[in-house]
Design a protein around this nucleic acid. Sequence first.
DNA 1: AGGTCGACCTGGCAGC
DNA 2: TGCTGCCAGGTCGACC
Length: 278
Amino acid sequence: MPELPEVETVKNDLAREITGRKVIRCAVFDGRVLKVSPAVFTGALKGKIFGRPARRAKAIVIPLAPDGYLVAQLGMTGRFFYRKFPLSGEESRDVKVTFELDNGCYLYYLDQRMFGRLIHARDLAEIPYLSAAGPEPLGDKFTVDYLAVALKSRKGPVKNLLLNQGFVAGLGNIYACEILFAAGIHPEQPAGSLSVPDLEKLHRHIRRVLREAIARRGTTLRDYRDASGKKGGFLEAIKVYGKKGRPCPGCGTSIVRIAQAGRSTFFCPACQKGPKIH
DNA sequence: AGGTCGACCTGGCAGC
DNA sequence: TGCTGCCAGGTCGACC
C-alpha cells in the first residue's frame, strides 16, 4: 500500500500522538507480522518510551528509550491506528498488535495481507532493508548528477529502476507511473539512454510529485489510511495509475496498461514517447 | 552484477 | 448465487 508520501503522513501523525508516551502493555494477535516470537517482542516493548518517529525509505523508525528501535515496514496493507478508546468488533478485524499507552490511549497495528513487519532492533544496522536503501529523493544527496551516474549503463527499463529501493528510496508503483507521465518519459525507456534534459525532468518531477502527494496526505486507492483512519487526498490528482482505457488528461489518448517485472504500469503512449532505443 | 520471477497472504471484484 | 481467475501502494530469495 504505502509509498513514501503515505509513510511520511503516518509518521507525522504518530509523531504528534505517541512521542514521549510509554508502552504500558503490548499484545500480539498474529505473530506473522513479527520476526521474533510474540513473547520476545512484547517483552522488548513493554515499559519502553516512544521517541519521535522518523521515516527512512518506506519504513517508520521509532526510537525507544532507554534503548532500541521499533521499525515498521507496512508492506501492502499494514497501517497504524491511534485511538482514545479500544477498537471493538468489526473495527478490530485486522488488528495484529496492540500497544496500550500511559495516557490511556491505544496504538494499533493492523494488516490484512500481512506483508508488513514490526521489527524490534537494538541497532538500526541490524536491519538490511535500511542499510540497502538508496538516497532519499527529497534529500540533499539526490541530485541530477547522482541520477546521471546511477542510471548510466543501466539497460533495464527506467520504470523498474524507479522501483528499486537501492537506487532511490521510497517510490512505489503509483508514484513511479505518475512521475514518468509528468516527465513525459516512456516507462520502457532503457534507464541508461535518458538524455540530460530527461534526467533533469525526471529529477524535478520525482520531487514535485512526492511533495504534492505529501501535502495531500497520500493516495488512497483502497486500503491506505492515515493514523486517524482517514483517506489520503492525492487520488484526485492521479493522472494515469489505474486508469487503463481512460483518456489522458493531457491529450485524450487512451491510457495503456502493460506489465513490467510482473507489475502493472500505466502510461500515455502519446505523451510518453519512446522507447528511443529498441 | 543486473534483471526477472515466484512466493508470501487475504480479500474484492468482474465475468461466467 | 456461486465459482474462478485476476488483481492489489512491497520485499525477498532463487535463478538466469
